[in-house]
């Protein structure tokens, strides 16, 4: 079984410390979640694991082998695949071609890339979009395209960066099943997600980051009960994270630290007025998200990206 170990990784951007001595791990056969408010350094940590970001300090191990200085494309060949928080689908290729590029990239593994591609399209449920250009599909669908593309290289370790945003409630439900399914095949699934309902349902282990530091690790129940998590993640008197599926990445409203260093727009102070959040009963610190069939939740987020 595969195993990822991130040991005391630190990433500094100029004077900002995005990740501060974070140590996490993810194991084959499990879904491991990485949660924390915006700017906690989750995506930066993903970038470190995949090699898109060089850490200022610390090491990354895959199956005990030090891969801290391995280039990104070699890590992929060692079985690491990911999706992106801000979409990185190949916009001018069709959905099918997107997946095919990945299937072709590991031809040694995939004897029949065309079959693998078709199989994934069916499995993820992308049939109706197969021939559409990836920059013309709704955001939620584009995320699934990225997931299918990542699966096409048959990874041992799958990193998913907010995969469920843009999905409806029903879609999120079956997406959770897909995650469990992937883990049961022996893959290590590491997921960054704001949908607490989903996280609590599917995760075996949860790591909580706050301002770059790891503040808690454990099972969903342990993490929910952790006083540090309550304080840092929700803020003492702050409202809980308002996080409905269809929201654009930039739209998460609970911002504990001023800027998200993962974000290209980090230098720009927020110009958009934050949405007023609803007060929730203080009894449950991390409530499963009320994902009723509201007018918003069923709507794919298609605006903003194009």
């Amino acid at each position: 079984m595969t195993r990822l170990d991130v040991k005391e990784v630190t990433v500094r951007f100029g004077g900002v410390t995005a990740v501060d001595q974070a140590t996490i791990s993810a194991e084959g056969g499990q879904v491991t979640a990485l949660i924390g408010p915006n700017g906690a350094g989750k995506t930066t940590l993903f970038n470190v694991v995949t090699g898109l970001q060089k850490p200022t300090g610390g090491r990354v191990f895959l199956d005990g082998k030090d891969i801290t200085h391995t280039p990104t494309h070699r890590r992929a060949r060692h079985g690491i695949a990911r999706t992106f928080q801000r979409l990185e689908a190949f916009g001018s290729l069709t959905v099918e071609e997107n997946i095919r590029v990945a299937a072709d990239a590991v031809r040694a593994k995939n004897a029949k890339p065309a079959q693998v591609t078709r199989g994934l399209i069916k499995r993820i449920g992308l049939e109706r979009y197969a021939d559409a250009r990836a920059d013309a599909v709704p955001t939620g669908v584009a995320r699934l395209v990225e997931l299918a593309r990542a699966l096409a290289i048959d990874p041992e370790l799958l990193l998913l960066d907010e995969p469920s945003s843009g999905l409806s409630e029903a879609e999120t439900e079956s997406f959770g099943e897909l995650l469990r399914d992937l883990a049961s095949q022996g893959r290590a699934v590491l997921i960054v997600e704001h949908d607490m309902g989903l996280i609590m349902r599917v995760s075996d282990v949860i790591h909580v980051l706050d301002r770059g530091r790891l503040i808690a690790s454990g099972t969903p129940a342990e993490v929910q009960a952790d006083p540090l998590v309550r304080k840092a993640y929700l803020g003492e008197e702050d409202e809980p994270e308002d996080d409905e599926g269809p929201e654009d990445d930039d739209g998460h409203t609970l911002v504990l630290s001023a800027a998200d260093p993962d974000d290209d727009t980090a230098a720009v102070p927020p110009t958009r007025p934050t949405r007023p959040t609803q007060p929730t009963p203080p009894a449950s610190p991390i409530p499963p998200l009320p994902k009723g069939p509201g007018p918003q939740s069923g709507e794919p987020a298609s605006g903003g990206w194009f």
Partner: peptide, 20 residues
């Protein structure tokens, strides 16, 4: 397909094991 993929997103290509 690889050429176009590389133009659209070099980062994603690298995470798929393609050497840009």
């Amino acid at each position: 397909r690889v050429l176009i993929a590389l133009r659209d997103s070099p980062a994603a290509c690298a995470t798929l094991g393609l050497n840009p």
